[in-house]
Design a protein around this nucleic acid. Sequence first.
DNA 1: GGACGGTGAAACTTCAGGTTGCCTC
DNA 2: GAAGTTTCACCGTCC
Length: 513
Amino acid sequence: MPKLDDIVAEPAVALALDTIKIGKQALVFANTKRSAEKTAEEISKKISGIELKELSENVMHVLSKPTKQCERLAKCVKKGIAFHHAGLTHKQRELIEDNFRNGSIKIICCTPTLAFGLDLPAYRVVLKDMKRYGQRGYAWIPVLEAHQMFGRAGRPNYDQEGQAICMAATDSEKENIWERYILGKPEEIYSKLAVEPVLRTYLLSLIAADFVNTKKQIIDFFKKTFWAFQFGDIETLNAIIERMLELLEEWELIMSGEKDDFKDASKLNDESYRATRIGKRVAELYIDPLTAYFILTCLRNASSRKVNAFSFLQLISHTLEMRPLLRVRAKEHDKIQEALLKEDSFLLEEEPSMYEPEYEDFLNSIKTALTFNDWINEKDEDFLLEEYNIRPGELNVKLDLADWLLYAAEELTRMLQFQSLIKEILRLRLRLKYGVKEELLPLVRLENIGRARARKLYFNGIKDIADVKKADMMKLAQIIGRAIALNVKEQVGEEIKEIKPGKRKGQINLSDF
DNA sequence: GGACGGTGAAACTTCAGGTTGCCTC
DNA sequence: GAAGTTTCACCGTCC
C-alpha cells in the first residue's frame, strides 16, 4: 500500500490510492483522453499486490495487432486500474465495465463517456478537471454534466453513502466550484429543433409522411412544439420555416402548388406541399436534406467524371453526419495537400479555393477520406492510430457512419438510375466493412474469414471460393487452423475427407469454433 | 575548426462524446 | 489553461 510520502504529486492519484486502501472503487473523470490515460498509468505505477494477468491479456488482444493504446491499457488493467473513453474498442469497454462491476478493477479513469447512459456506479467519484477545452475555449464544464458525474457516486444496495469530489487548485477556485456546481442551477435545456439540420430533416419527414401538407398545417404543428414555446417569436419562426420550405423545394425534395406530374393535383394548391419521389426516400433514409442534395449533386457530376473509391470516400466524408472530421494537424498539412493533388481529379465536388474559410473543412474531409482509403487498403488499426491519430473505437464509429451514408448514396444512385455507379458503391461498402482490397472480396464472404485470414489464404494461392473447394484440407488447416478450415469447407459444400478419429463427417463440436 | 551530442528554455500544438439513421448486399 | 511535443540556441567534447 502507498506510503504517505508517495502521495504528493497528483491529488487525484492520491485519492484513487486511498479508495483502494479503504476497499472501495472510484471513477476519476478527466477532461481529455490523454489525461485519462496518463492518470490511470500514474495510479497503476503505485500499485503492488494486484495481478490481473488473464484480463490484461484479453484486453491486449482484441485486435489482430495490438495498438499502443492496447498495450497501455493492458499494462494498467494488470494492476486493477483502467482508462475508459470512446477510443477503446467495444470489446475492451465491455471487459472493463464488467470487471469493474465484479470488483476486479478498482479504479477507472475516464472521459465523460462513463457518466452518460451507462450504469456504472462507484463509492467515490473524482472530478479531476472542472474545465475543458470546447467551442468557447477553455471553459467550465456544464453544471448538468457535473451533476451527471456526481450521480455516479454511491452504489445502491452496497454503500450507505457516496462521495463526489471536485479538485480545486486554489481557494478561489474552490469557492467558484461551490457556487457554480453546488449552489448554482443547471443550464436551461434547449430544443434540438433550433438546430437547422434537425429542423429541415423533420420538416421533410412530416411532409413526406403526409402528416402535414399545407403551410397552415405546418406552422400549426411547429407552433405546438417546445421549440416554438421556447422561441416565443412566432413571426420569426414562420420566416425560418418559410425559408426552409423554399430550400427543400429548390433541392427538389418537395414541390408546391399545382404540378402536372402529381397524381392528386387537385389537393395541391399554392400553399400546399408534397414530397417528391426522391424526397420521400431521403426522409426514409433519415439523412439531412442538405446532405442528400450534396450527394445528388456529386452523383450527377460523377456521370461525366473519372470515379474511383476515393471519390465516394471523400463525398461521404464531407457531410454533416460525418462530423466531427479528423483534423488536419499543422505538421500534416503538406502531406495531406500532396495526397489531395494525387486524387483531386477524382473528386466529385468543386474544390473550394485555398483562401476561403471552408477550405480547412474541405482538407479535413480529405484526411478523413484518406483514413478510410488506407483502411480498405488493409492498413491495420495500429498504423491508422500512428498515422492519423484515430483510435480503434473512433474508427469503428466512423466506419459505421460511412456505411450508412454509402447506403444512402447507393439508394439515391438507384433513383437516378446511374447503374454503373451502383456497382462501384456496393463494392466499396463491402471493402469498408471488411477493410480489404478488392481482390479479397470473394474470400471475406465466408463466415469466420475476415481481413487477416483472407489475406493469409490469398497469400497462399487460395484466391476465391473455387480455390477453397479445391484446396487440400491439410494445407487449409495449416493456414487458418483446423477448426476454421473444417467450417469453411462445410460452407463451400465440400466433403470433409479427413476427420478426427471418432468423429463422423458433419459432426462438428461447438468447441471447434 | 568543425561535427556532434546533450541540455534546457521557449515556442508551438492539441484538447469529450454520441443519438438515430438504413438494410442484410 | 495545461500538458505534451518540437525547435532552437548554447555549451562542452572529441577528432
